[in-house]
Structures are given as structure tokens and as C-alpha cells.
């Protein structure tokens, strides 16, 4: 089974957000906190590694983004992904339709000497733009079924059984491969890279292809920080001495 995992390099969010001078992006220079992947996508990569461990095959990480996205891919190679592909951009943000088209092209290309992909895994939504649609658009372009918001996944005999959490119960879906599945944080606990894993990762291939950016149809104009009610918590007290005041608050707001 050949599995593709699509991931996106995003700034590591701290407690404070700083925008660039024309308010079109996060200022990652002066508020530098490094870069990471969405938790959903870390889980997608972990799921791919586990599926290949259990069933054989290969895993490929595909990322649309700047050349430095290779850093995040390298981290995933260190936890067991076999190879990476960067679809390189100039740092301009691509809208979901353009992103899905570029990633689909790489899925269609398959794995060198190992054939076509059987499964594409993504996070249900990216940490930054949270568009909730790239996986679905890829499935339409590929003519494959898609299940989203997946928190439980098993594959046997070419059929993926997917569980999705809804309130206090789980819905079950089954789809025949090839398929696109978008997962949520909580489907597994991603492993940390080991030192031998890091050493092995250095020898694994990361290919770079150039992306061609079509005109955006969901066109970002500017970003802003939401107006947050400046609040400073009213301190009710220290330690257990504050308990009577807490009970008064419960009464005031009518929960007891």
C-alpha cells in the first residue's frame, strides 16, 4: 500500500500574534517562534507510518510551501515516513482550490518504481487557514471517495473502516481504496523522532518540484487581530480561602 500524507508548514503560535507591516501575514521575523505542523497532520503522518508497518508499502509526505518546508518533512522522515516532496512556492499563500490541484498532481504522479498511491491522508483542516476542504477537493479531482474528521482507522482487504466522533457516539464509514481520508487530532499519539530515526532521515529523499500558482478565487486581502475585550480577571482570593466567593459566583450566574 502506497500512502501519501499532505502537510503544511505553519508558524508555531505563541501567546501573542504580530502582523507584518501591510497586515497580510504573520510576522515570523520579529516574533520568531519557529515553524511546525498542525496536530491533525502530525496524526495523519503517524497513521501512515503505522499502516505501512502493519501492511507493508511506502509512505510519502507532500507539502506545498516554501523550500524550508523540507524541515517539517525531515521531521516526519525521522519518525518513519519514507520520502518527501516539496511543491515549492515563493511564499505566497495559495487558496484551497489551487492547493488541492497542486497536491492532486503529485498524487497522480505516484511513487517512483512503486506505482500508484492507494490512500491519501490529510488533516481535516490546516492549523492556520482552517479551510476544511482541500482533501475533499482532491478526492473529487481523483474520482475517489473521501471520509473526513476521522478519529479511528483500520484497513483490511482494501477497505478502510473509519470512525468519526459525533457528540458522545461514533459514526462508522467504510470505503474501498483508493480513497482520501482526513483525520483529526486524537486518532493516535504521534511518536517522537529517535536519534537513529534522525540519522536515517538524513539519507531519505526529498524531491522538489515547482508549483504554478493560478489566480486565487478565495483571495486574502488582509489579516487583523480580533478585538478582544481587555479583561483582567477579578481575583476572588488565594487557595481554598476563595471557595465561599466561588460559590457566590455560582449562585450569581445561576448554576446552583
Amino acid at each position: 500500500m502506497n500512502i501519501a500524507v499532505c502537510v503544511k508548514r505553519v508558524p508555531l503560535s505563541g501567546g501573542r500574534w504580530v502582523l507584518n507591516a501591510d497586515s497580510t501575514d504573520i510576522d515570523t521575523e520579529s516574533s520568531f517562534l519557529g515553524f511546525t505542523l498542525s496536530p491533525h497532520e502530525e496524526c495523519a503522518a503517524e497513521a501512515a507510518v503505522q499502516l505501512v508497518e502493519a501492511n507493508g508499502g511506502s509512505s510519502t509526505v507532500i507539502s506545498l510551501g516554501v523550500a524550508e518546508s523540507a524541515e517539517q518533512i525531515r521531521d516526519l522522515l525521522a519518525v518513519g515516513i519514507d520520502r518527501g516532496v516539496v511543491v515549492e512556492t515563493d511564499g505566497t499563500e495559495w487558496d484551497p482550490q489551487a492547493t488541492a490541484a497542486a497536491l492532486t498532481e503529485q498524487v497522480r504522479a505516484g511513487v517512483p518504481d512503486a506505482g500508484a498511491f492507494d490512500l491519501v491522508l490529510l488533516g481535516t483542516e490546516a492549523a492556520d487557514t482552517a479551510d476544511y476542504q482541500v482533501g475533499i477537493r482532491m478526492a473529487h479531482a481523483l474520482g475517489w471517495p473521501v471520509v473526513t474528521n476521522v478519529k479511528g482507522l483500520t484497513i483490511s482487504d482494501g477497505v478502510a473502516r473509519c470512525e468519526r466522533a459525533v457528540g458522545s457516539h461514533r459514526e462508522v464509514y467504510e470505503v474501498a481504496l483508493p480513497a482520501v481520508i482526513t483525520v483529526k487530532d486524537g486518532i493516535n499519539i504521534p511518536r517522537y523522532p529517535s536519534v537513529p530515526g534522525r540519522i536515517k532521515a538524513r539519507k531519505k529523499p526529498i524531491d522538489t518540484v515547482a508549483g504554478e500558482h493560478p489566480a486565487p478565487r478565495l483571495e486574502k486581502v488582509r489579516l487583523e487581530l480580533p478585538e478582544v475585550e481587555e479583561r483582567s480577571a477579578t481575583v476572588l482570593g488565594t487557595g481554598a480561602d476563595a471557595v465561599p466567593a466561588l460559590v457566590d459566583v455560582f449562585r450569581q450566574i445561576g448554576v446552583i
Partner: peptide, 30 residues
């Protein structure tokens, strides 16, 4: 802690001493 900028009310202290006392007081109040 950053939560203090979002919270309406705060108790400064160890939850392990606050919470059991709060459970008892809430039970009594009810």
C-alpha cells in the same frame, strides 16, 4: 498565566487544595 487575560474570575492557588474544598462547599450550598 495567559488565562488570566481571558478569565472573568480567578483564584490564585493550587487546584488540589481548592477543588476538594469547592466540591464540599458546592454540595453544602445545594
Amino acid at each position: 498565566a495567559p488565562i488570566m487575560g481571558f478569565a472573568h474570575y480567578a483564584v490564585i492557588g493550587d487546584l488540589h487544595s481548592v477543588m476538594p474544598a469547592l466540591v464540599e462547599a458546592t454540595r453544602a450550598a445545594k
